[in-house]
Design a protein around this nucleic acid. Structure first.
Lengths: 329, 329
DNA sequence: CGGCGCAGGTTACGCGCGTAATCATCTCCG
DNA sequence: CGGAGATGATTACGCGCGTAACCTGCGCCG
C-alpha cells in the first residue's frame, strides 16, 4: 500500500492528456485555452488521485514558494503569541500563502539561510531584524514586511507607545499624579518594554506630571515582593503602577497583597494584553487589551498589500487596543 | 544589487570544479573521494558566496525535505504551547531537521495536502489525527510520529492520565474524601480533558472514594461564579477540586472568592500546567507542573529514534511532571 | 612492457513542475 | 478550393540538486 504520491504526470495519464494540460488547468492559466470538457476530465482525475502539487517542484520551477516566514525573536513569548500566530496563519491561508514560523533559537539555521532554503516569498517580522539578517535577506532579494508601518516606524513600536499612553491616560484621568513603571526582568524584553515605557512617559509629560518611576519586577514571587517594597519606600508619591504586561501586573499585585497594601485605594495597577486570566486576579485587573485577531488581520492585509506593491495602511490602533477597566484602578 | 541567490553551479565555477564535486563536498559524500585540497577550495568558494542550498532543489532531487511538520489541533492553546514548540524546534534543529508548525484552521490546507506539498519528512502530532488525515498521510507514506508512545497509547493520553492521578493522590493524601472535577467549557478540549478526568477517577477508585463530581466552568467570570455556587449546593460532600488546568483553577478560585468560601479551609483547589502566573493567584495555586523543555526533548528524541527505526522509549513522566504544592491545598 | 586498480574527478540523468514555443485541426471567408 | 486565423492540446526546456555511471591519469606488479 506504499502508493507513491501522485504527480501531475499521473493525473495526466489518468485523464488521457499531456502534463502541460494538467498544469494549465490546475493553475487556472491566464490565457484560458482549455476546453471545458477537458478541464473537467483533468479536475476529476486529480480529485480521484488525491493529487496535491509538490511545493518543491513548483518552487523550483518558478523560483519561489508560497511560504511566508514569520520570524519570532528569541524572547519569552506570552499568552497572546499563539493566538496571534494562529490568526495570521488563517488570514494568509485565505490568500493561498502558507505561514511558517521560525523561532530564532541559537541552534536553528540563521534567518537568511532558512529563507534561501525555502525559497521564501517574504519574511514577516514584528521587530527590527538584526543587521546581518536584514542585509542577508536584502542580498537574496527577499522582501521583509514590517508588521504594518505607520509612517516612520514599526507597528509594534507604534502600538506599544500607544499602549503605554493608554495606561497612563486612564490613570491620570482617575486623578493619579505619581506613576511608576513596572518593567520585566528579562533583558531580552527591553525592545518591547522601552516603547511602552516611553508612551507612559509621554503621557506624563503632557499631563505636566513627573516622569514615571521605573522599577524592575523579578520573575519569582519573593523577588516581586522585595521590588514592590523598595518602590513604596523609595517613591512615596507613587499612587499608581503601569505594568509592562498582565503577567508583571500579577506579580505587582502579589507583592502589594503580601505587604497588605490596599488596591486600588493606596496603589492602583494597570496591565497590558488582556489575557483571559486578567479577569481572575484579585482584585480583577484593569488592562489595555489587545485583540490578537484584529492585529493578525491587519498584519496579513499589510503583508499582501506590500507584496502587490501597494502602500502600507496605517495601523488601526483603535480596532486592536481596548481599555478594559476593572477593579485595580 | 539584485544579486540572484548563489547556486551550486556558481560555487562550482568559483572553485573551478564541476557541480558534482561541489555537491559531494558539501554533503560529505560517504565514499570520500575528494582531495583535501579541492575540498578546501570548494568550501572557501561556498563561504565566499554565502551559498545556501535550495531546499526546493534538494527536496526534489531526493524525494523529501528535512521538514518535520508539527500538527496543532484547532484548539485554544494555552500558555505552555509556545514554550513547547520553541523547545521542539531547538531539539530538532540540533539534528538538522526544520520544524514547521501547522495550525489546523479551517482555511488552511488540509494536513495531507500540506505534507505532500512540503515533501515532509515526518509529521508529529500530540493527539490522534482525524481518520481522513491519518489515512491520507498513510497513503503518502509519510511517517506519523506519535508523541512518544508508551506501550499502548499516545504520550499525551498517558501523561494526562498521570496528571489527573497526581492531582487526586495529592488531595487524598491530605485527607480529602469528596473530590470534584472542573472541566473546561470549550468542547474541543474534551480529548484533553477526558484522560485527565479519568486519571482522577482512577485514583478515587483506588482510594475507595466516590467518583469525582464533574462540573463545567464557563470562560466568563460571572459564569464561573454560578458554576461554583451550583457545585457547592449540589455536592455538599465535596471538599476539593481538581481543575482541568491552571486557568480553570483561576476561574474556580475566583468563584470561591466571590462566594466568600475559605480556600483551602472549606475547599481545596489544584491545577495542572504550572504556568508562571500560578504562583500569583490568591492564594497561590497548588498545581501539577509540566516541564515543557523536558517534554520537548523527549518528543524530539522519540521522533529521531522513530525515523531511524528504533523502538520508542517510554515517556519519562517523572522528568516532565512535578507536583508544586502551594497554598490552595 | 602491458594491463590493472585506484584516486580524483567529470558527464549525464531525473526529480515534479511551469511555461514558451510549437503543432494539429477545424472553421470560415475570399 | 486554398489559405488565414482561431482553437485546443503537445513537445521541449530549465529551475537546483543528488548521484549513478563513466572517464583519466598514474603507480605498480606480473
Amino acid at each position: 500500500m506504499s502508493t507513491r504520491r501522485a504527480t501531475s504526470a499521473d493525473v495526466a495519464r489518468e485523464a488521457g492528456v499531456s502534463r502541460a494540460t494538467v498544469s494549465y488547468v490546475l493553475n487556472d492559466a491566464p490565457g484560458e485555452r482549455i476546453a471545458p470538457q477537458t478541464r473537467e476530465r483533468v479536475l476529476a482525475a486529480a480529485a480521484r488521485l488525491g493529487y496535491a502539487p509538490s511545493l518543491a517542484g513548483r518552487a523550483l520551477a518558478n523560483g519561489r514558494s508560497d511560504i511566508v516566514l514569520l520570524a519570532m525573536p528569541d524572547v519569552p513569548s506570552g499568552e497572546l503569541t499563539p493566538r496571534f500566530v494562529d490568526a495570521v496563519t488563517r488570514s494568509l491561508a485565505a490568500q493561498g500563502l502558507t505561514l511558517v514560523v521560525h523561532f530564532d533559537v541559537p541552534a536553528a539555521p540563521r534567518l537568511p539561510r532558512l529563507a534561501a532554503m525555502l525559497s521564501v516569498r517574504a519574511v514577516v517580522s514584528l521587530f527590527p531584524l538584526s543587521e546581518p539578517d536584514a542585509s542577508g535577506l536584502r542580498r537574496l532579494g527577499v522582501p521583509v514586511l514590517p508588521a504594518g508601518t505607520d509612517g516612520d516606524g514599526l507597528a509594534v513600536a507604534a502600538l506599544s507607545l500607544r499602549q503605554g499612553r493608554m495606561q497612563a491616560e486612564h490613570l491620570i484621568g482617575r486623578g493619579h499624579t505619581g506613576l511608576a513603571y513596572a518593567r520585566p526582568a528579562d533583558p531580552r524584553l527591553a525592545p518591547f518594554a522601552d516603547p511602552r515605557h516611553e508612551g507612559v512617559r509621554l503621557a506624563c509629560a503632557e499631563g505636566m506630571l513627573a516622569a514615571p518611576v521605573p522599577f524592575t519586577v523579578p520573575e519569582d514571587a519573593a523577588g516581586a515582593v522585595t521590588a514592590v517594597r523598595a518602590l513604596l519606600a523609595d517613591a512615596p508619591g507613587v499612587t499608581a503602577v503601569c505594568a509592562y504586561n498582565d503577567e508583571v501586573a500579577f506579580a505587582v499585585l502579589h507583592g502589594l497583597r503580601e505587604l497588605g497594601v490596599d488596591v486600588p485605594g493606596r496603589i492602583a495597577v494597570i496591565g497590558v494584553d488582556g489575557i483571559p486570566l486578567s479577569a481572575y486576579s484579585c482584585p480583577p485587573l484593569s488592562t489595555v487589551a489587545v485583540a490578537p485577531g484584529a492585529a493578525a488581520r491587519h498584519l496579513a492585509r499589510a503583508a499582501i498589500a506590500h507584496l502587490s506593491g501597494e502602500p502600507a495602511a496605517p495601523v488601526p490602533a483603535d480596532e486592536i487596543l481596548h481599555l478594559v477597566p476593572r477593579a485595580t484602578t
